[in-house]
Structure formats: C-alpha cells, structure tokens
C-alpha cells in the first residue's frame, strides 16, 4: 500500500515535469516526436534507477559515516556523470541495438535535473533503498508519460496555424501549461 501511494503520487499527482518542474529542458527539447521521446524516457528511467541506488549507498555508507554530508551535491553530480558515461560504454559493447536506440540521449541526461533531483529527494524524504528505487522508477515513468503525451500533442500542433510570435518555445510552454492544468485534476487521488 505504501508503495502504491509512492507510485501513484510520483506518476500522476506530483508529476515530475508538470508539477515539480524537473527535467524541463529535455521535456521541451525532445518532445517533437513520439518515437524519440519514448527513447529518451527509456534512457532516463534506466539512469535514474541506477543513480538512485548508487547515490543512496554512497550517502548512507560513505558520506554520513564520515560526517561529510555537505559534499552531497558534488559527489552526486560526479556519480551521475560517471554513470552516464559507463552506461554509454557498456551499452555500446553489450547491446549495440539498444545503444543505437538510446545512444544519442545518454549524454543529455547528465544535465537532466530530474536525475539529480530524484537522488537528492530520496535522501531528503528519508526513504529506504527499496522505496527510493520505487520512487525513482515511478518518477521516471511520470517523466516518460508527460514526454509522450506532449510529443503526441506537438505532432498535431505542427499542422496547426500558430501565430508567428508563439511558434516554437512559447506554444510548447502553453501546451505544457494546459497539460499541467489537466494533471492538477489528479490532486487528491492519494488521501
């Protein structure tokens, strides 16, 4: 039950993009097509889960015992950067097909603040490892959901006649705003 609450809250109620404002850059950047956004979502899920596990262990078994909790930001971002590199290298060797599918998105993930955000939130919310992983995975799914819905709308928007000044970023933001309004309807599902 606890886990179900975490999952629903992270995917719908506190959607990472539409209500927490994490990962906006890739959300605006790669939501032009459904296929690419699905790829990005896959890559992000993979990295978030991995990063959550590693940063959790580091925080609780290295930083805290040493009393250097203030090094959190620096250590986490380095871990994430290194992880992304490693995942890239390993995927290239082990599964060229998957690498082909996710490859171009991987370098972008280091600066996706959803990854670092989730890592820090897991520590802040005092989750245990399993809760952390569930939270990370569902946040990533929420990210993917927002991305794919957005891409679906933007594919349609290409055909619409948008006023000149609104083309590009403004209309994307406006669409996101309406989506966020829709997602507000989920508020109150949990408790």
């Amino acid at each position: 039950m606890e886990y179900l609450i975490i999952i629903i809250a992270a995917i719908f109620v506190n959607n990472v993009v539409l209500s927490q404002f994490l990962g906006i850059c890739p959300f605006l950047g790669v939501s032009n097509k459904i296929s690419t956004s699905a790829g990005m979502a896959g890559a992000v899920t993979f990295v978030i889960v991995l990063a959550t596990i590693v940063t959790f262990l580091l925080q609780h078994y290295v930083l805290n015992p040493l009393g250097v909790g203030f090094m959190q930001t620096i250590v986490f971002i380095l871990v994430i950067a290194a992880l992304v590199q490693m995942v890239e290298i390993m995927l290239k060797k082990l599964s060229p097909a998957l690498y082909q599918a996710l490859g171009i998105f991987l370098p972008l993930i280091t600066t996706n603040c959803a990854v670092l955000g989730v890592a820090i939130l897991v520590i802040k919310k005092n989750y245990n490892l399993l809760e952390g992983v569930v939270f990370g995975a569902s946040t990533a799914i929420g990210f993917g959901l927002a991305l794919v819905i957005m891409a679906g709308i933007r594919e349609q928007l290409d055909l619409a006649n948008v006023p000149k000044g609104m083309k590009g970023v403004p209309i994307a933001l406006l669409t996101a705003g309406i989506l966020a309004l829709a997602f507000m309807g989920f508020a109150g599902i949990v408790k």
Partner: peptide, 15 residues
C-alpha cells in the same frame, strides 16, 4: 500554481 508558470512564461517569451 504549476500551470500558471508555464502559461506566464509562454507569453513572456512570445512578447
């Protein structure tokens, strides 16, 4: 609230 952030920024950039 969250939607207002998107909407206000959209119009600011458009302007």
């Amino acid at each position: 609230l969250a939607p207002g952030a998107f909407i206000a920024l959209a119009y600011l950039i458009a302007i």
